[in-house]
Design a protein around this nucleic acid. Structure first.
Lengths: 157, 157
DNA sequence: TCTGAAAATGGACCTTT
DNA sequence: AAAGGTCCATTTTCAGA
């Protein structure tokens, strides 16, 4: 993993981040490279881990996950073992879409995707009340998801 | 947009969410459908908006965005105009990767992706201090991104 | 960069329910 | 009608010259 990315790479990344199904000849036209050059670069970017994976973004509502909830969590002990166990319990839960370990007023920020409130309740019982290392937590219910995703500002500066 | 998704759809969604580049014949083998049937279903799911888009997930560090910051924001007025203007100022900012409008102690939760602290400082000046409708905000710096993305729990429950 | 083979996509057409 | 399957043309990928 590594290498410095040149301007071509960055433009390709911006493009495939936008739409991963743009054919390589179109990408080539857009950035002024031959199809083969695009192909080789994308291959390399994938191998280097710059492109982590390709994914289809699914509308949460369409599959019943109408509710997004953000929780902030404070832990009792930040001792490594305890912390890792807690972190792990969060990340392995499929309903925890995102997990950040943070400095500031809280130790973790979690983004939950659930079908309904009751499901979140269950999860809090398991992940928070059921974990002695969780000191306190706070819940924010998303009324709207105004912007979501993993898009990075490439070439935006 | 709409339709109920059957078991085939759900399994296809789970698969392409995992890896959008799995060829349709492999998907077919996995779910027991012909390639053509897979093709038709994916097309339909795309048209119905169940699959919103296809994207390449890029490693933030590889493109210089080493720092993720979560900010919670309270607004002065939740009057529609004001609120929408504020919301919009957040969502159009490329460094705001995610924006949720929330009920609870805070009105907005924002996830920023930046190159360094100074860049976040600038953004706070523009988005928060520069906006009379922002009453107060709080910053949480991500020390680690333990789980990220938009993955939904399909067929997990 | 060009060329071509292999792979993948996606439409046409027919069959089943 | 709605959805599956087979077959075939077109498009796309990807490696070697």
């Amino acid at each position: 993993m590594n290498s410095q990315l040149d301007s071509y790479d960055l433009r390709l990344l911006a493009a495939v981040q936008q739409d991963a199904r743009t054919p390589q000849n179109e990408l080539g036209e857009a950035v002024n490279l031959s199809t083969a050059a695009v192909n080789r670069r994308l291959k390399r970017l994938g191998e280097e881990g710059v492109i982590e994976r390709y994914t289809a973004v699914i509308a949460p509502d369409a599959v019943g996950y109408g509710l997004t909830i953000i929780a902030t969590v404070e832990v009792e002990s930040e001792q490594i073992d305890q912390l890792d166990a807690t972190r792990r319990s969060f990340t392995v839960c499929p309903h925890v879409q995102q997990c950040y370990y943070t400095a500031g007023e809280w130790d973790f920020v979690l983004v939950f995707v659930v079908q309904h409130m009751e499901q979140y309740n269950e999860l809090t019982r398991k992940l928070f009340f059921g974990n002695a290392n969780v000191k306190r937590f706070k819940t924010l219910v998303a009324m709207s998801r105004d912007k979501v995703g993993s898009t990075l500002p490439i070439g935006e500066n």
